[in-house]
Write a protein that binds this DNA or RNA. Structure first.
Lengths: 185, 185
DNA sequence: ACCTGAACACCGTTCAAGT
DNA sequence: ACCTGAACACCGTTCAAGT
């Protein structure tokens, strides 16, 4: 793995735990095995690094959601597995979705970073909307609204589970969403 | 207003916009009209100040929810007005719920602060559970699960609306929760 | 009791200097 | 091309000194 790749991965992990503000160049450099000043040879600023991390994050999300779709037997099963993507972040040392952390940090974020965060949300909602229609859960007229609602609610469930360091709470919340009718049974 | 009070208010406003990590003692002091070192006369550390802010935050939430209950004509109307409490944060310069920001910042927060954040969540969920039972939406056996789900989902809606600086999106999300059956019509 | 300037070790960032 | 030490202005925090 190249040094640039190693920086991207280590920065993503740190930002899912500590946010953009909490990302520390000296610690990040130590993780990668270089000095803080050397990071600037690969990324011109913290803002550029964060934007690159956020872009890679939604690119990976696209691949991950593609994988869920192709390995599921039908759209309903793909939908059912959607919350599992958020669960996996919690499984990795209780990390938060990068999009959620950066949404919280909205005020202090460079515009380029916010753009990538928006793309991440759009990628998720477009995938959900298609699955909702294909599975016959809602008509195409309502699919966007419902997709948005599911994305926001699952993000909220992950945030709450993180605050208690309790993956079982995440599962309980998803089950409640299903019982209440927000997610298909 | 005493200097301690002014510090608490200014610190809360900053933390709802920038988080615990983003709270800056020199700027905070300037807001209040003193120097950074003087803050330590009122609060022994940043952790203590944050814990005091978080405690005050849930105490205010109790008062706010009490007010919603007593001014509502019945439990169903009180429930219907619940998302409005989160909406008001967005109305104040797109600020996030302090509990949500601190949930994101979980890894870097002092334990005393996390305790107050948990109390904030419990206060909200207990209020919701009682209103859900009183309004006859769910039985007391399911009221806790549903209250948790509503709290998490409304938090997620606020987070997403903040990331777009779009209060209308918050309203759309709440409407979708109602249509889907998570929130009573 | 309340406030302050100066100092500390730490941050992101720059830059001249190295290989 | 890639890395580094030293420096900069900034952070939370301390403390001796002021009123």
């Amino acid at each position: 793995m190249s040094t640039s790749e190693a920086i991207l991965v280590a920065a993503r992990d740190s930002m899912q735990a500590n946010g953009f503000g909490g990302l520390n160049f000296r610690d990040l450099a130590a993780d990668v095995g270089i000095k803080a000043a050397s990071i600037y040879h690969h990324f011109p600023s913290k803002a550029d690094l964060a934007a690159a991390v956020a872009r890679r994050y939604w690119e990976d999300a696209v691949a991950r959601l593609d994988d869920v779709l192709t390995t599921a037997s039908d759209p309903a099963e793909a939908l059912h597995r959607y919350p599992g993507v958020f669960r996996q972040s919690l499984e990795r040392q209780n990390r938060l979705c990068l999009g959620s952390f950066m949404s919280a940090e909205y005020d202090g974020l460079p515009a380029a970073v916010i753009n990538e965060v928006h793309t991440f949300a759009e990628v998720n909602m477009a995938w959900l909307a298609k699955r909702l229609v294909d599975a016959g859960i809602v008509g195409s007229a309502e699919s966007e609204d419902r997709a948005r609602a599911i994305f926001a609610a699952v993000s909220g469930a992950q945030l709450m589970a993180r605050s208690r360091s309790d993956i079982a709470l995440f599962d309980t919340l998803i089950a409640s969403y299903r019982e209440a009718g927000l997610l298909p049974g």
